[in-house]
C-alpha cells in the first residue's frame, strides 16, 4: 500500500506525485525506476524516480497524461493509495568525475534527468543542461535544475521561453563552444535519436535512458527489449541507460507503438466514459 503524500500539476498534463515508499527511498540511486499498478485492474507501468527523501520515506514521480493509466494516475489525490509500487529497478547511472557533462532533457524526460544532474554535480563535474519543451508551460523543474548546474539553457519549439529551436541546437551551441566529456540525453525516443546523432558527430560518449514498454520490469518478459549495437538487450535489467550511439532508436520507436491502436481506442473510450460521468 503506497500512499500519495503530495501532488501538484507542473503543467496542464504533467503531475508530480510524492509517494510513501520508505525502502525504495532508501535504496534508489540516480537512473533507477519503479513499476506501479494503480489498482486491481491496472496495468504495470514503469516510471523513473525523479527524487526521494530518505527521512520522510518518500519518492517523487513525474507523470505525463498520455493514456488510460497515466490519466488515472494524474487523477489521484493526496491521501489516495496506489496498490503496487516496486523498485528501485534497473541499473543505477555510473557517476564519476569526468569533467564537463552535457545533460539534455526533453519534455517529461527532464524528470529522470534531475537525479543524474544532481549526482553528476555532487561528483564535481561541470554540468551544462539543455532543457527542451514545446512551449513555456511545458518546461518543468527549471529551478531545481538550475540549483545543480553551472549553466542552464532552455529551448522551446515556439520560442515562448529561452531560445527558439530544438534540443539539438542548444546542444550544438555548447559543444562548439567548449569541450564536452560526456553527454546524457533523456526524453522522447525521437528526441534521443537526434540528440545521439548530434553528439556522434563530435565523438562525445553519450548515454540515453530508455523508457520502453514493460510488464514485470525484472527481466522476466522481454517486452522492453531493444537492439544495442546489434545485440538484443533488456532495458529493465541491462539498462535503462545504454550507449546512445549504439541504440537502434527506429526499432525502439516501432516497439513503443506496439499496442498503439488498442491504447488509443481504450483511451478514447475512457475519455468518453469520463465525460459521461462528469456531465451527469
Amino acid at each position: 500500500m503506497f500512499k500519495i503524500i503530495d501532488k501538484e500539476f507542473l503543467s496542464e498534463n504533467v503531475a508530480k506525485l510524492v509517494i510513501e515508499a520508505p525502502y525504495i527511498a532508501k535504496s534508489r540511486k540516480a537512473g533507477h525506476f519503479i513499476i506501479l499498478r494503480i489498482n486491481e485492474n491496472g496495468e504495470r507501468i514503469p516510471l523513473t524516480i525523479s527524487d526521494a527523501d530518505i527521512e520522510k520515506g518518500t519518492i517523487t514521480l513525474i507523470v505525463q497524461r498520455v493514456g488510460v493509466s497515466s490519466h488515472k494516475l494524474c487523477a489521484m489525490n493526496i491521501g489516495d493509495i496506489i496498490l503496487d509500487v516496486v523498485g528501485p529497478l534497473g541499473k543505477a547511472t555510473r557517476i564519476s568525475k569526468v569533467g564537463t557533462v552535457l545533460c539534455a532533457g526533453g519534455g517529461v524526460g527532464v524528470a529522470p534527468l534531475f537525479p543524474i544532474v544532481q549526482a553528476m554535480k555532487l561528483a564535481g563535474n561541470r554540468v551544462v543542461i539543455v532543457l527542451a519543451a514545446r512551449n513555456k508551460d511545458l518546461v518543468i523543474l527549471e529551478d531545481k535544475m538550475r540549483e545543480y548546474s553551472d549553466e542552464l539553457i532552455i529551448m522551446t519549439d515556439d520560442g515562448s521561453k529561452g531560445k527558439k529551436g530544438l534540443v539539438t541546437q542548444g546542444m550544438e551551441e555548447v559543444i562548439e563552444r567548449e569541450k564536452v566529456d560526456e553527454a546524457i540525453v533523456i526524453g522522447p525516443a525521437v528526441m534521443m535519436k537526434f540528440a545521439a546523432l548530434t553528439t556522434k558527430k563530435y565523438n562525445i560518449p553519450t548515454l540515453a535512458s530508455l523508457n520502453t514498454i514493460m510488464v514485470d520490469g525484472t527481466g522476466m518478459c522481454g517486452a522492453c527489449r531493444v537492439s544495442v549495437g546489434g545485440k538484443t538487450e533488456f532495458v529493465c535489467v541491462h539498462g535503462p541507460e545504454f550507449d546512445a550511439h549504439k541504440v537502434n532508436f527506429d526499432e525502439m520507436l516501432s516497439r513503443l507503438n506496439a499496442y498503439k491502436d488498442k491504447e488509443t481506442a481504450n483511451y478514447q473510450e475512457y475519455l468518453k466514459e469520463l465525460e459521461l460521468v462528469l456531465s451527469n
Binding site: C221, G222, S227, F234, S254, Y259
Partner: peptide
C-alpha cells in the same frame, strides 16, 4: 528462471513477436 531466450534471427524484435513469458 528470469530472462526469456530469443533466437537472435532477423526481425525478431518486430511488434507482435513476444516471449512466452510475456
Amino acid at each position: 528462471a528470469g530472462l526469456p531466450n530469443f533466437m537472435n534471427i532477423p526481425g525478431e524484435n518486430f511488434s507482435g513477436i513476444q516471449s512466452a513469458n510475456e
